[in-house]
């Protein structure tokens, strides 16, 4: 019986040490790619941040780890910490991370000049290649940045380049919408109407294009067409462009439609 308990104690001790050893393997010993993947899947947890801290301590040149660690911080508004990590990733591997940093500055910070600086630098680093930061055409994003700066002429140039890059059939339908909005802001209502119609040729239910048309036709005193399109905007509002992270610069809401309807009803 005494021997049995001794053997049992040895087994339990070995099991308990093995259990603790698993944590050490997970945090310090497993291949860095596997730990990166594990930490990435736990995004936002303290465990994820701790694992990235260990990874970058062991591998100070691991650009992707700095980038991935920054994501949760920036999403939750901790920009000083998030961008310190993202800047490090860019410093180590600018081609891989400049585009994302530009995208973050554009969409999360509305820091248009610095977003453009990142996109332009990325473009210079990749000659004869059309970059797609975070999956979107670089010229579309540059167009958005110029639009945010209210530099509508440069916005039109950038969005037009995006159409050349992707081809009209494959371009984001919002490219035409932004072109229409930029022309509208410059007071070129006929051109705006033409661009909004190009959007509808690609996707007839685009509510942003219908609302843009309603406003442009209103400016041209074509109230019948304006009313027709504002109703279509309302009818198709479910198809509007939105994103769980941030509001787009050209995002529309029911209130925008109701305001135009009210203006039209007063005429």
């Amino acid at each position: 019986m005494k021997k049995f308990f001794k053997v049992l104690k040895v087994i339990v001790t070995v099991l308990l040490f093995s259990y603790s050893l698993c944590f050490i393997l997970l945090m310090f010993v497993m291949p860095k790619e596997e730990r990166f993947s594990f930490a990435g899947n736990m995004q936002g947890m303290h465990l994820s941040q701790t694992m990235f801290n260990f990874l970058t301590w062991q591998h100070p040149d691991y650009a992707a780890a700095y980038f991935e660690q920054s994501v949760a911080l920036n999403k939750r508004g901790k920009y000083a910490e998030g961008f310190r990590l993202l800047d490090k990733a860019v410093e180590l591997d600018p081609k891989a991370h400049l585009g994302y940093r530009g995208y973050m500055k554009l969409r999360f910070l509305r820091d248009y000049d610095n977003a453009l600086a990142d996109f332009n630098r990325l473009d210079q680093l990749t000659p004869n290649f059309v970059d797609a930061p975070w999956g979107e055409d670089i010229d579309f994003l540059r167009g958005e940045a110029y639009f945010g700066k209210a530099d509508f002429r440069n916005a039109i140039s950038a969005f037009s380049r995006s159409l050349e890059n992707l081809g009209e059939d494959w371009a984001d339908v919002q490219t035409f919408v932004y072109l229409g909005l930029s022309e509208y802001e410059l007071g070129k209502y006929e051109k705006a109407i033409a661009e909004f119609h190009r959007a509808l040729e690609q996707a007839g239910a685009t509510p942003e294009a219908h609302l843009g048309l309603a406003k442009a036709y209103q400016q041209r005193d074509n109230f019948k067409k304006a009313e027709e399109h504002v109703l279509k905007a309302e009818e198709n509002l479910n198809y509007k462009r939105d994103d769980a992270y941030k509001e787009f610069l050209n995002e529309i809401y029911l209130q925008d439609i109701l305001e135009v309807k009210e203006e039209l009803s007063r005429l």
């Binding site: 947890m45 303290h46 465990l47 911080l73």
Partner: peptide
């Protein structure tokens, strides 16, 4: 480990 898994950034 429990603490690390049950606390989130922010």
């Amino acid at each position: 480990f429990y603490h690390q898994m049950n606390n989130r950034v922010g």
